[in-house]
Amino acid sequence: MRLLSSLLASAAVLTSVEAQNGYKGFNYGAFFNNQVPKKQVDFEYEFRAARQLPGTNGQFTSARLYSMVQWQTQNTVIEAIQAAINTQTTLLLGMWASSGQEAFNGEISALKTAIQQYGKAFTDLVVGISVGSEDLYRITPTSIQNGGGPGAQPAELLNYIRQTRDAVRGTALEGKPIGHVDTWTAFVNGSNAAVISELDFLGMDGYPYFQTTMANSIENANRTFYDSLDATVRAAQGKPVWVTETGWPVIGAQQNQAVASAENARIYWEDVSCSLMAKGVNFYYYMLQEAQYGNPSPDFGVKGPGDLMQVPNRFDLSCVRQSFFLV
Rank of each mutant, 00 (worst) to 15 (best):
M1W: 12
L3Y: 11
S5R: 09
S5F: 03
S10M: 06
T15G: 05
S16A: 13
V17G: 02
E18R: 08
Q20I: 13
N21W: 05
G22R: 08
Y23S: 10
N27P: 07
F31D: 11
Q35A: 14
E46G: 12
A49R: 02
A49C: 06
P54L: 07
G55W: 15
G55E: 06
G58C: 02
F60L: 11
M68I: 05
Q70N: 05
Q70D: 10
N75V: 04
I81H: 01
Q88W: 00
T89Q: 05
T90L: 03
T90K: 01
L93C: 11
L93N: 02
G94D: 06
A97F: 01
S98A: 15
N105C: 03
E107L: 03
G119H: 05
F122V: 01
F122E: 05
F122N: 00
D124N: 14
V126R: 00
V126H: 00
G128Q: 05
G128R: 02
S130A: 15
S133N: 15
L136C: 12
I139L: 15
P141T: 15
S143V: 12
Q145E: 14
G148D: 10
G149H: 13
Q153V: 13
L158T: 11
I161G: 13
I161A: 14
R165H: 13
K176S: 02
K176D: 01
H180N: 15
D182T: 09
V188W: 13
V188H: 06
V195P: 03
S197I: 07
S197A: 15
E198G: 10
F201G: 00
L202W: 06
L202K: 09
Y209F: 12
M214D: 14
N216M: 11
S217I: 08
I218F: 03
N220P: 09
A221F: 04
N222Q: 10
F225A: 05
D230C: 08
A236M: 02
V243C: 08
G252I: 06
A253H: 09
Q254Y: 05
Q255Y: 04
V259L: 10
A260N: 13
A260W: 12
Y268V: 05
D271R: 11
L276A: 09
K279F: 02
F283Q: 01
Y285L: 12
L288W: 09
E290N: 13
P305S: 09
G306K: 07
D307W: 11
D307R: 11
M309R: 13
P312D: 07
F315E: 05
C319H: 02
F325T: 10
L326E: 10
